[in-house]
Design a protein around this nucleic acid. Sequence first.
DNA 1: TTTTTCGAGACGACTGGTCATTTTTTATTA
DNA 2: TAATAAAAAATGACCAGTCGTCTCGAAAAA
Lengths: 200, 200
Amino acid sequence: MPQPKPTQKQINKENLLSQGVTLLTHKGYHGTGLKEILDAVQIPKGSFYNYFGSKENFAAEVTQHYIAPFIKQLDAHLQNPDGDALGAIKRYFGELINELEQTDFKGGCLLGNLMGEIGDTSEVVRASLQQAVNQYRDLLQAGLAKAQQEGTVRTDKSAGEMADLLVNTWQGVLLRMKIDKSSVPLKQCCTNLLDEYFRN
Amino acid sequence: MPQPKPTQKQINKENLLSQGVTLLTHKGYHGTGLKEILDAVQIPKGSFYNYFGSKENFAAEVTQHYIAPFIKQLDAHLQNPDGDALGAIKRYFGELINELEQTDFKGGCLLGNLMGEIGDTSEVVRASLQQAVNQYRDLLQAGLAKAQQEGTVRTDKSAGEMADLLVNTWQGVLLRMKIDKSSVPLKQCCTNLLDEYFRN
DNA sequence: TTTTTCGAGACGACTGGTCATTTTTTATTA
DNA sequence: TAATAAAAAATGACCAGTCGTCTCGAAAAA
């Protein structure tokens, strides 16, 4: 039995990570105090250090907790038997744009925000971010490769390179979105890459 | 006489802004304490608040102080009479890549870092960031428009849209650079956009 | 010309509060 | 009871920002 009944410790950790995702996304690493997270989930400070050891380690775990649902969501679209891979990717990013519009373009991507803020000062967080981004990129690469086989995406450029470009550009447009308070950059990114540059 | 001899106040502000660029770029907004900046330039705290009023206003001025040299550098390339506009842009980004390689991919772009960290929490900084990015984008747009006239860049897509895509993608690859500690993303960005997608 | 007055700018010790982390105490479980 | 986990309390460092004092040059008065 893998997890028939989660222990209180597991529940607490889950709550902390979940709240951590929200707060770190919106207020950043140094902008979020431990007390703020602890108060939100009603867990004493001592327990936090028992669970995670340090704020840095916590942030590293938060990044993994953050990316998992996105991987799941994208994978669900790609696994969908009816519909081509390129269409699945486009629909996935369309959903992301919808969600961002509904949250008034606030927050953006936790990964991108942490990369900019502490990507080059905290080694543990850096490594965790790299792993999360690579996971995401690899799934995108697989989707693009499938689209290549289906003939919708050009084959003179590797799926890996296109996946990288897409991931990186997406991070860039998320930043631009935040200061322009607009989804136009997001849509332009999808159009330019998915509808034009990658097209066969 | 515009500025025959700068006052001590002007010198102090200049030093603070210059040090602010360095520290905010590498340690972020919340990661940099005022004391750290003040100690570095040997200026008392009272003077700081006399000059800037608040840390937030200071950061807003720092962003302007940060972007100016980049505008100048890119403009110098574009003004160069011998050589086409697309070549000038490519050479400019080549220089940026060189500089980033020499600084071990640390820091990245202050604008991008601040967009992620406080782009949606500080209104004054957000506005300043937007202005700085737009300045940069407009210059890039002018360069791309010139390249269109010269026949090296496609004309079926507006120079403005391409400038936006380039600026945004560049921000994204700078983040990726930080966690991969590699200039490969930077080079791929230039190749994909300037050598391929934008090409006529 | 010399003296006095005055005010703007410069200044740094100080404030209340928050920071992440550690140490100590209490509770739980084996 | 011994070992382990959880919670509370304590710790010192640091935070952005303030405020009363001081300095110094220019204007006013003598």
